[in-house]
Amino acid sequence: MTGSRRAHPSRVPVLALGATLLITLQGELHDSMAEQLQEDLTHRIAHSPVTGVVIDISGVDIVDSFLGRVLAEIASHARLMAARTILAGMRPAVAITLVELGLTLPGLPTALDVERALAMFEHGPCPDPPHPRRANHADLP
């Protein structure tokens, strides 16, 4: 992070590994980029034989409710098109903050890192999460 006001970055790169798409989010993510990504992904999944999506957020400093919503929606759109999404590499500080914020992303499977996420696709014992409960993210007592 340079600390200077940068030009508006354009797109998040999407990498195809066989039938799996790998998305690496990094640093500051502008709202418009997140929305653009959501559109791009839906398009990619619809037009190619994608069965899995891994979103690597190990390089992301914060996840707020906006990005949380985008991630949850990507997962539920992908599921509608028969692709599974795994969120990989969340940092401890981000996880603690998200829980305190009240976002537990119940419909989204998670993995420690990309390697684990890819292994989950290979071995397949990734239990399909319950039906996405978009409206019910505050499932803490």
């Binding site: 969340m90 401890p92 829980v99 305190e100 537990t104 998670t110 007592p141």
Partner: peptide, 19 residues
């Protein structure tokens, strides 16, 4: 209920990290 809430938060945070 407060202790239970703390436990649930910890469980939720660990799950977000894939554990």
């Amino acid at each position: 209920s407060l202790v239970a809430q703390h436990l649930m938060k910890t469980v939720a945070a660990a799950r977000l990290m894939g554990a």
